[in-house]
Design a protein around this nucleic acid. Structure first.
Lengths: 221, 221
DNA sequence: TAGATTGTTAATCGATTAACAATC
DNA sequence: TAGATTGTTAATCGATTAACAATC
């Protein structure tokens, strides 16, 4: 415990993937696995897996490998999935509604406690058992319920102002879908930007590059 | 041109972000920008920006900087945004419908040409001007329209089999939302996995780690 | 010309991989 | 004990940063 301090972001970004693969193994009733086997499965090196896991502690056993269930539980605990961070979602349009319905917040360490929008035709609707409130009620709600995290599914134009308002209401973490890079300098502020558009453009590049490589290889014959 | 061969993935992943920031500058009628100014804006180093851009060619001018409009156009062209890769989407549930409606395919190098589902209550619906077809018609459709890319918004259990079927029908690129890591070894296959759940878990970790760091710093006082 | 800023090379830093002693 | 596989250190690789000559 407490070994995980200053672990590099690249390692952290791999943890959920380990967690998923271990979950799959568990479903297949695999009880133990070696770093070599897991590496083959995940297309990583065994060294990297052992290195990654040892950032947090010695979860394996020499000569045996790793116990799948134990390792998964440990990683889940490191990720903090066993908590219920009170979380609100702002912007219940297409995307916001889908995120609210689709994500498994409970098993990811979050609890969705409020939905907000400024569109009168959306306010009052029920999504995932929550009634959409007017953003005008945000101050009141935050004082009462103290949400720590907010999911932003709002237009880019209002992202910054909304984030600043939420920060002033005690929200410290953002899951940001707003096509705008929240680069705010607040002590302790945590932002995960999700840029689906960037991902799509990267795919475009790679298709493009792949075709060029093919052309080049044909030319070089 | 054709300078971009074997450019590292980390550089490529930054290109869409450059593209977005340059778009913002353009809207503000900024015509020129130096690497130093852009670095400050994007929270990068000027060195990195110059290094990144020089993977593809000398877009700047000594003593002047970069022309915003020109640079943006160049990056768009490198990303291949000026194309129309025929693309289909499989799985028009909550997520699939939102992706179909929400993404700006046209300005990302793609053209959405077909939607497919196996749910009778969804088949026949119209989304983004396209009628949802039965997945049973996939073979026929692919032979006729030759889609090159597919967006997978299907349950993880059927992801692999569906991908293999699509590959056999000539689809070579996947934008995969299915919570399953497509790790297939086909020559020229390109996959972008989007794991929203991983992103959420990473946020959970960072909140957790941030709190621990705070506790530690209090202890150390 | 002088000032500014790029393109590019060299230095540094960090992350991945390899190797192996420790140990189950 | 012998075999297997970890935890951990050392070597390698790649990416970022710094520096500066080239040049607008």
């Amino acid at each position: 415990m407490a070994k995980h301090q200053g672990v590099s972001l690249s390692v952290i970004k791999r943890l959920p993937r380990y967690y998923r693969f271990l979950g799959d193994l568990l479903k297949k009733d695999v009880t133990r696995i070696s770093s070599r086997e897991l590496a083959q499965l995940m297309q990583l090196t065994a060294s990297q897996i052992r290195q990654d896991l040892n950032c947090f502690g010695g979860f394996g056993q020499q000569g045996y490998g790793y116990n799948v269930a134990d390792l998964r539980r440990e990683i889940g605990s490191i990720l903090g999935l066993d908590r219920n961070i009170p979380t609100i979602l702002i912007g219940v349009g297409n995307l916001g509604r889908t995120i609210a319905r689709h994500m498994d917040f409970e098993s990811s360490g979050f609890q969705l406690v409020g939905l907000f929008d400024n569109n009168p035709s959306v306010i009052g609707q029920s999504v995932r058992g929550l009634t959409v409130s007017d953003v005008a009620q945000l101050d009141e709600f935050c004082h009462a319920r103290q949400p720590k995290a907010a999911i932003l599914c709002i237009p880019r134009e209002v992202a910054r102002a909304t984030a600043e308002r939420l920060i002033s209401l005690g929200v410290t973490s953002f899951w940001n879908f707003s096509h705008y890079d929240l680069l705010l300098d607040f002590e302790g502020l945590i932002v995960e930007n999700v840029h689906l558009g960037d991902s799509l453009m990267t795919l475009s590049y790679r298709i493009h590059a792949g075709e060029q490589a093919k052309e080049n290889s044909i030319q070089s014959n």
